[in-house]
Amino acid sequence: MEKTMDLTLKVWRQKSANSMGAFETYAVKDVSEGSSFLEMLDTLSEDLVEKGKEPVAFDHDCREGICGSCSMTINGIPHGPEKATTACQLHMRHFHDGQTITIEPWRAKPFPVIKDLVVDRSPLDRIIQSGGFITSRAGSAVDANAIPISKATADYAMDAAACIGCGACVAACPNASAMLFTGAKVSHMNSLPQGKVEKDRRTLAMVTTMDGEGFGGCTNIGECEAACPKSISLDMIAHLNRDYATAQVKNFFKPVA
């Protein structure tokens, strides 16, 4: 039989974007240590429904750490205490009987709360929409092996592309900066030969959008990398800074469009 635990939860409850929120305290009992953090929240929800109360709203979908939906700060850390783990993949064996756990939404100005733990992360989509793509109309591609790409380059691009767009980096940053998110996409696309054509345009457009959405600047604190469930490296920010500087210089002499 699996071990179980009783917990005290302090959960952020907020009816809507415009209403005031507050912490509510709940007790949950008999949580099995093999269940995931979100399954523990499911148990709380069922208890609340049983009492005719509204369950806690939170974003979640795949529950296997890849869709990037889940977005909650657990005991002050986005996605909780386990390194390189999303909240949905965080298992209760990392907590102990009698523990008090505080759960709140991403706290960042560009991510307004919609309800309880649910926030609006559409600014991240808009950063991608402004330049996070490599133009290739369906039907226009050359043979996939026509451009050999070194394994090192492909691996680097994959490291960058592993970002799941959850926004933990923004939530962890005292400046609410989205540099790790943006840097990862820029590094992924700018490092591949097929992405080089739009490199300067992409970099400038994405940074402009990022700033316009109200994300703060990067001051090299490193909280983002520590909180990232996919361990995206700070090097991606360095890569972005490098490409941004180059693009700006080029743009100064000859606008890149």
Binding site: F133, I134, T135, S136, A138, G139, S140, A141, V142, D143, A144, N145, I147, P148, I149, S150, K151, A154, D155, A157, M158, A161, H188, M189, L192, Q194, G195
Partner: peptide, 22 residues
């Protein structure tokens, strides 16, 4: 086959061999 071409063209970082081929 067209799908693989299309995906590589829009930046999908498929695994590669040391020689640079897929």
């Amino acid at each position: 086959s067209d799908i693989i071409d299309q995906c590589v063209a829009n930046g999908v970082p498929f695994a590669r061999e040391y020689g640079g081929l897929l």
